[in-house]
Design a protein around this nucleic acid. Sequence first.
DNA 1: CTTGACCTTCGACAGCACTCCACTGTTTAC
DNA 2: GTAAACAGTGGAGTGCTGTCGAAGGTCAAG
Lengths: 117, 117
Amino acid sequence: MRIGELATQTKLSKDTIRFYEKIGLVEGDRRPNGYRDFPPETVPWLHYVRTAQALGFSLSEIGKHGEQLRDSPDSAAALSALLADKVQVIDDRMAELANLRADLTERIGTGCPLRPI
Amino acid sequence: MRIGELATQTKLSKDTIRFYEKIGLVEGDRRPNGYRDFPPETVPWLHYVRTAQALGFSLSEIGKHGEQLRDSPDSAAALSALLADKVQVIDDRMAELANLRADLTERIGTGCPLRPI
DNA sequence: CTTGACCTTCGACAGCACTCCACTGTTTAC
DNA sequence: GTAAACAGTGGAGTGCTGTCGAAGGTCAAG
C-alpha cells in the first residue's frame, strides 16, 4: 500500500509516516517509480505504536521493542517472553498509578490537599 | 527557603526550578540580595506538579490548574476537585493499560505476536 | 581578606516528535 | 496533452522541557 492510503487508514500524516520510516520505526519496499510500498501489517503495527506511545513509551523505546521482536529467531517462546516483559512493565505502571490514586484520594479526604501528608 | 534547599527537597535541579519560575509554574519572593525565597508549600506544590506531569499533563496545563487555584475562594475545595479529576485520569489510564495488557496477552497466545490480530 | 559555597542573569544548545515548505517526478482522468 | 492528485527529496522551523556554561554578585568561616 502506498503512503497515502496508509496515512488514511492510520490517521497519521504522510510526513509522520516518512518520519517514522526515517527513524526506523516502519519499513517498506520501494516501487520502481520510487514510491513507498508498505505491507498491510504496517497498519496494526502503527496502531500498536500509537497505543504504546500514548502509554508513555518513547519512539526509540518502541523501535527497540519492534527490533527485538523482528530479530528474534522464530522461537515463539522468545517473542512471547518479550511481550510478557511488556505486560510486566504494564503491571508495574498500573501499580504505580494505583499508588498515586491512593495518595490523591487520601489528600482529598484531608482538608488541606497540598500539604505534605 | 532558597533555591538550593528547594532543589534538594524536591529532587529537581535548580535550573528546572528557575525554568518553572520563568514559565510561571512556581512563584517566590526575592530577598534584598536578589536571591529567590520560596514559601514552604512550594515543596508539595512541586510534588503535585510532578505527579500531574507523570499523568500526561503539560506544564502549561498544570500552570492553568495553579491559576484556577489562586482564583478560587476555597482553595482546599478547589484542589480537592482537581485531585478528584486526576483520580479520574488515573482510572482512564489504568483502563487503557488493561486494554494493552489484554492485547499483548492475546498476542502471546497466538504465537505471532506482531502480526495483525 | 581570601576561599568556597551559594546565588544571579543571559543566551545557547539539546532531544523529542513532529510539521511545513519548495521544488520535482509520476499516474490517472478527461 | 494538460490538470489533478499523488508521490519523492532535503532542509528549515516549531513547541516542549529542560540543561549547560560563562561571567559575575553575596555571604560565612578561617
